[in-house]
């Protein structure tokens, strides 16, 4: 049984040990989408990192997004050689602009047919895919 489970391909998982992004991923366990803003120059830094890209005496603070956003662009993948995603085609990948500013890459879930039900400008909300140590921030239409 364990052998069989091992063979089931899984989504490529983020590393919790990656130093720039560890705080982000640890917070996802509680379904919190954290992003950084500089208290000195107000720059919203995305993806997370240890330094401010807007000024050289930055003071990055973690904020929590309300989880609402808009699809900036998307594509429906029909062909993937990845063992996990191969089994998921067709699926939608999208750049989502959160209302607070960060633009992140994700998948659009909760649609019957990604070919017809995903649009630029569509309002979406976070839809967490839960795992033992973290959750993956997907989005679904509001």
């Amino acid at each position: 049984m364990a052998e069989e489970q091992k063979k089931v391909p899984t989504r490529p998982m983020p590393k919790l040990t990656e130093l720039d992004t560890a705080d982000f991923w640890h917070a996802t366990k509680n379904k919190e989408f954290k992003y950084q803003q500089c208290a000195n120059c107000q720059t919203i830094v995305w993806h997370p990192r240890a330094h401010c890209t807007g000024c050289v005496d930055g003071d990055l603070q973690w904020k929590t997004s309300k989880g609402q956003g808009t699809i900036y662009s998307f594509s429906v993948v029909r062909l993937s050689y990845h063992p996990f995603f191969r089994s998921k085609v067709p699926y939608a990948v999208a750049y989502v602009d959160l209302d607070e500013g960060p633009r992140f890459l994700t998948n659009v879930t909760g649609v019957e047919d990604p070919l017809t039900d995903v649009h630029i400008g569509q309002r979406v909300t976070l839809d967490w895919e839960e795992y033992e140590e973290l959750s993956i921030p997907l989005v679904k239409p509001v």
Binding site: R11, P12, M13, P14, K15, E18, D20, T21, F24, W25, H47, P48, S73, F74, S75, V77, L79, S80, H82, F84, F85, K88, Y91, V93, A94, Y95, F104, L105, T106, N107, I136
Partner: peptide
């Protein structure tokens, strides 16, 4: 580490443009 979970193929990246 923020992107690979989404399965965006290289072609899909250009497709989004």
């Amino acid at each position: 580490n923020m992107e690979s979970f989404a399965g965006q193929t290289l072609i899909a990246n250009y497709a989004m443009v």
